[in-house]
């Protein structure tokens, strides 16, 4: 029983970076922008966040620096894709490749550096509950913040006027433009929010999860987060569940190995993408399904006044 509790705990920790990045990408995809640069933004944020945490000794300043770096990288993408009308997919890919190289370049001085770590205390009172304590209440604060963030984003999308405007920009930018909404600025705000959250995710990996900086440490998690938004059919709660599912699969595979059961690691690392393709096939077969779920203008360049 205790092993299962610990497996749940490890799953929460492993799913959190995916959830943070996935929620960020969800925000900018709901506004109609696909940013394939997640992997690059996370890498840049991971090294920036690590450097800030290393130099100041504060994890939270590290997260702030990571968010700022992610948003800064996203602003390059936003400027190119929204104001210079470049193709979103190509621009995002370029950002991913750029981020991988740039982070390695600026991060050479931080390879092999050690962050002073304090043990994670969790939630006082609840952390000592039998089973539930070790399973749920001994995590880093960022784990709980990501759950709160999911709730906040869901509330924003479906309960606020601003959320409605953001979604309408993603569904019908021309109509939103005709109604007088500044489509490009709204999209830019969404892109920046997405970049900042990807940045927090990258910083979580380098400051809390690993905790160290090394080139290539994002190791495909940005791509998994991108797949996650599709897997979740663009719903906040499902992004969170999907993140725990993908995180849980990894941990379960390692756990089974420890028990002496062999599962091919390569198959497991393929699973998130495979399941995303399955979801895509399922929702794409039905025109109504796809209309209900996918932001209608996703990935399309918007020219105001055309």
């Amino acid at each position: 029983m205790n092993e299962i509790a610990l497996l749940v705990a490890a799953t929460l920790a492993a799913g959190t970076p995916l959830a943070l990045a996935g929620l960020g990408l969800l925000v900018n995809e709901r506004a109609g922008v696909v940013n394939l640069g997640a992997e690059g933004m996370m890498a840049i944020a991971a090294v920036t966040g690590f450097a800030a945490a290393y130099l100041t000794g504060s994890d939270w300043l590290g997260f702030a620096a990571g968010a700022a770096a992610g948003a800064a990288a996203a602003s390059i993408f936003g400027w190119l894709a929204l104001w210079l009308y470049t193709n979103q997919y190509a621009t995002g890919l370029a950002l991913s490749l750029f981020g991988a190289g740039f982070s390695a370049f600026v991060g050479t001085g931080y390879v092999g550096k050690n962050l002073e770590r304090t043990t994670i205390s969790g939630i006082p009172g609840l952390r000592d509950l039998p089973l539930l304590g070790p399973a749920l209440f001994r995590q880093h604060a960022m784990v709980y913040l990501s759950i709160a963030l999911m709730a906040a984003i869901a509330w924003f999308f479906y309960r606020t006027r601003a959320g409605l405007v953001l979604r309408s920009v993603g569904e019908a930018p021309d109509s939103a433009h005709a109604l007088g909404y500044p489509v490009r600025r709204i999209r830019m705000a969404a892109v920046l929010a997405g970049g900042a959250l990807c940045g927090v995710s990258g910083a979580y990996l380098s400051i809390i999860y690993a905790p160290m900086w090394v080139e290539g440490m994002i190791a495909g998690r940005g791509w998994i987060a991108l797949a996650l938004t599709v897997f979740a059919t663009w719903r906040p709660a499902r992004v969170l569940l999907g993140a725990y599912l993908f995180g849980g699969v990894t941990m379960l595979q390692l756990h089974l190995q420890g028990m002496g059961v062999q599962v091919p690691l390569q198959f497991m690392s393929m699973l998130p993408y495979l399941s995303t393709v399955v979801v895509l096939v399922v929702i794409s077969r039905d025109p109504l399904w796809i209309r209900l779920n996918m932001p209608a203008s996703l990935g399309k360049t918007f020219h105001p006044g055309s």
């Binding site: 490890a10 990996l205 190791a219 390692l254 190995q257 420890g258």
Partner: peptide
């Protein structure tokens, strides 16, 4: 590092 962390945690959990 992330995979190494996960693997180590998984061994400790067991």
């Amino acid at each position: 590092p992330s995979k190494e962390t996960e693997a180590a945690q998984s061994l400790i959990n067991q």
